[in-house]
């Protein structure tokens, strides 16, 4: 099969690491060649962060380029809008509708753009926007946003619930397994 590309984007500190870890686990158990890339260091300090997950028969490049992403999973609305150029023509953006002001907005040097969801749809983007934060809280913790979004992504991918649940069991501490499974299914079903 041709290589599939999933980008996970958000704000440094939002916890996208668990999402990429979970995906990595899931994909290697399915027998794929897998590459997962992210940048550590300075950009993590509240900056815009991106993780690339690629899988297929044979994966070469560790990064996803413009126009290549089959799915972009965004933890924050503005970050989804920032990376639209990376989406494939028939790709989908799965986006948490939470807004986090970047420093230029906080200082008044820039405005947080209004109507981003409408603008993305008007540009022909297949946007799946959900309030992942509320669903995560419903599951028991605001920190479970990543699992809600993974549940949403699961609708787009062809893996069984059992495979996802096994990957969750292998990726989170035992006492958080049920909470994370609940968040996953809330995201998937919402």
């Amino acid at each position: 099969m041709t290589t599939k590309n999933i980008m996970i984007v958000g704000v440094g500190g939002q916890g996208s690491l668990l999402a990429s870890k979970l995906l990595g686990r899931l994909l290697i158990t399915r027998g794929f060649d897998v590459k997962v890339s992210e940048v550590h260091g300075m950009s993590q300090r509240g900056g815009s962060v991106v993780t690339y997950v690629r899988y297929g028969d044979k994966v070469y490049s560790p990064v996803i380029d413009k126009g290549e992403a089959d799915a972009i999973v965004s933890f924050e609305l503005l970050e989804a809008a920032r990376w639209t150029e990376y989406l494939k023509k028939d790709g989908r953006i799965i986006c948490n509708t939470q807004k986090i002001n970047p420093m230029p907005v906080i200082t008044g040097a820039a405005e947080y753009p209004a109507g981003l969801e409408e603008k993305m749809r008007a540009a022909g983007i297949d946007l799946d926007a959900i309030d992942a934060l509320s669903l995560a809280e419903e599951a028991g913790s605001a920190k479970a946003v990543n699992l809600v979004l993974m549940g949403r992504l699961a609708r787009r991918l062809d893996f069984s619930d059992e495979a996802w649940e096994k990957a969750i069991e292998e990726s989170v501490p035992p006492k958080f397994i049920e909470l994370n499974k609940k968040a996953f299914h809330l995201g998937k079903m919402a």
Binding site: M42, M103, P104, K119
Partner: peptide, 20 residues
């Protein structure tokens, strides 16, 4: 041919790293 996606026709403010 290099694939290209759709850039939004909206100013996207940068999100530089900040002190926590």
């Amino acid at each position: 041919e290099a694939p290209e996606g759709v850039a939004l026709n909206a100013p996207i403010p940068p999100r530089p790293p900040v002190m926590c």
